[in-house]
Every structure is written in C-alpha cells, then in structure tokens.
Amino acid sequence: MSSSSGAIAGKGGGRLGNVLSGVAVALGCALFLGGFVWGAVVYRPYTVPTNSMQPTVNPGDRVLAQHVSGSDVRRGDVVVFQDDLWDPQPLVKRVVGVGGDVVACCDTQGRLTVDGKPVQEDYLKDSPLNSLTKFSSTVPHGQLFLLGDNRAVSEDSRLHLTDVNHGSVPASDVKARVDGTVWPLGRLGTMDRTPAFDALPGGGASARGPLKLLVVMVIAGAVLIFGGAAYGPLARLRRRK
C-alpha cells in the first residue's frame, strides 16, 4: 500500500514539475526574446569615429544609443548627431548648452561656464580646460551647443562660432542618446549620467534609458530557459538513482 501510494505521489510530483518547468521555459522565452525585440526597437549601435570623446568613449568603441527626440536632450547628455555643415557621418559629442544658454570659456580656474555659473566637468580628459580658446556664445532656441570631452583635439562647436548658429546645431540633428558601450568587452557597461549641470535652471542630464532593464530581462530569461529545460533530465536521473 505504501509503495503504491509513493508511486502515485511520485507521478503527481513529476507532472507538477513538468508543468512548472514548461511555464519557466515559456516565461524565459518571453523575457529573453522580449528583451531583444525591445532593445532592437529602442536602441541602435554606433561606432565612435574619433578620439574627441575620450576618456568617456574611445575611437572604435561600439555604443548603444537610444532613439530620442532632440527636444528631449538635456545638458550633459552624450548624443549621436549628424549635421552636414560639420561632417557627413554621425558624430558623438556632449551637450553643454541648450536653447537660451550663454556658454563661455573660461573662469579663473579654467572651467566652462553656462549662464555665468562654472561647471565642474569631472569627465574631461584633461583639467583644467587650458586647451580651450576663450569664447562666449548664446545658444539659439531649438539649438544645442556641443563639445567633446577631449577638448585638446575635439572639433566641435568652438570651430563653428562664426556660423549663423554661433557654433550650435539644430536639436533635430540629434539621432540618439548614448546609454552604454558594448564593444570592446573590456569597456562593456552603461554610461553614467553626469551631475555637472544639475545646479543650473532646468537641471542636468536626462534620466537613464531602459538598457539595464533590458539586460536583466535577457539574463533572467536565459536562466529560466536553461533551468526549465534542465528539469526533465535531472528528474529522470534522480528517479534512476
């Protein structure tokens, strides 16, 4: 009697385990594929063409950039943009001024100023900013003032100060906002948002995109798929023992 009851219990437990493993695999597939599909819709890969953004990103780095409207870009954001007056290929620079800002260089400590307030740019390759030529520019509304983090070599808004837009580019030229680096693997990770512009009216950099959530979805999905798929072989091995 006890042997028969044990067999029935074992079969019932096996059926429940099979159901749960199936649910785990199905949920894992939904998370895994959903993460990739969502990522493909929201993000695009770009290759950084120059060393103007070192040390934030290096030339040849493959970055993931989130599709955003230029009107949603804020000071401190690292963006991919394309302006035919600058270069026919997409470029990567940091936004330091938005419409209405007065961007100037430099104060007595070599710091960039926005609306007369000094900005502590800890992300720069070299500090203080003694490589910058003195200038002052009022950013037209609907435009962005862009500089590279490697100011000594970056070809950016400073070279276009005599243009009709006083060195800025239309916000509509922005293609995406950089959220992380995916290649090389040694630099794999998300991009930190800088607090350098937080004290200015309107605040600093944008909130993070969903990149970390997407990574969690893909990893969790893979764990559930392999865990659910492994249940059957493990259960059979246990019964044989």
Rank of each mutant, 00 (worst) to 15 (best):
231 Y>N: 04
42 V>F: 05
43 Y>K: 03
160 H>M: 09
92 V>S: 04
173 D>P: 10
184 P>K: 04
241 K>N: 12
159 L>N: 13
229 A>W: 13
89 Q>F: 08
3 S>H: 14
228 G>F: 01
177 R>H: 09
203 G>M: 02
199 A>Q: 14
183 W>S: 09
228 G>Y: 10
122 D>C: 05
138 T>V: 07
121 E>Q: 14
127 S>M: 07
235 A>R: 14
158 R>Y: 03
131 S>F: 02
85 L>C: 01
91 L>N: 05
14 G>H: 08
78 V>P: 00
103 V>Y: 07
118 P>S: 10
14 G>S: 14
214 L>P: 03
148 G>E: 00
105 C>W: 01
64 L>G: 00
233 P>T: 07
138 T>A: 06
230 A>P: 04
82 Q>V: 05
235 A>Y: 03
119 V>D: 09
215 V>I: 15
39 G>S: 12
51 N>E: 11
38 W>E: 10
113 T>M: 12
157 S>A: 13
196 A>K: 06
68 V>T: 13
209 G>Y: 03
200 L>W: 08
132 L>G: 07
75 R>T: 03
162 T>Q: 15
155 E>S: 12
130 N>K: 09
133 T>C: 00
212 K>D: 14
199 A>G: 15
2 S>T: 14
162 T>S: 15
8 I>N: 12
123 Y>S: 12
38 W>R: 08
22 G>I: 11
10 G>H: 04
44 R>P: 04
161 L>N: 06
118 P>W: 01
154 S>C: 06
180 G>E: 01
96 V>M: 12
104 A>S: 15
178 V>M: 08
6 G>T: 14
87 D>G: 07
234 L>S: 11
82 Q>S: 10
172 S>A: 15
15 R>F: 14
45 P>A: 14
62 R>C: 04
36 F>N: 12
206 S>D: 13
91 L>K: 02
199 A>H: 12
91 L>Q: 10
149 D>F: 05
15 R>P: 01
77 D>L: 03
186 G>Y: 03
79 V>T: 00
211 L>S: 00
73 V>W: 02
9 A>F: 10
200 L>M: 03
27 L>K: 11
53 M>R: 02
189 G>F: 08
37 V>R: 09
143 Q>L: 10
198 D>P: 11
144 L>A: 05
77 D>I: 01
25 V>S: 11
228 G>R: 01
224 L>Y: 09
58 N>H: 14
60 G>N: 05
229 A>Q: 03
23 V>S: 11
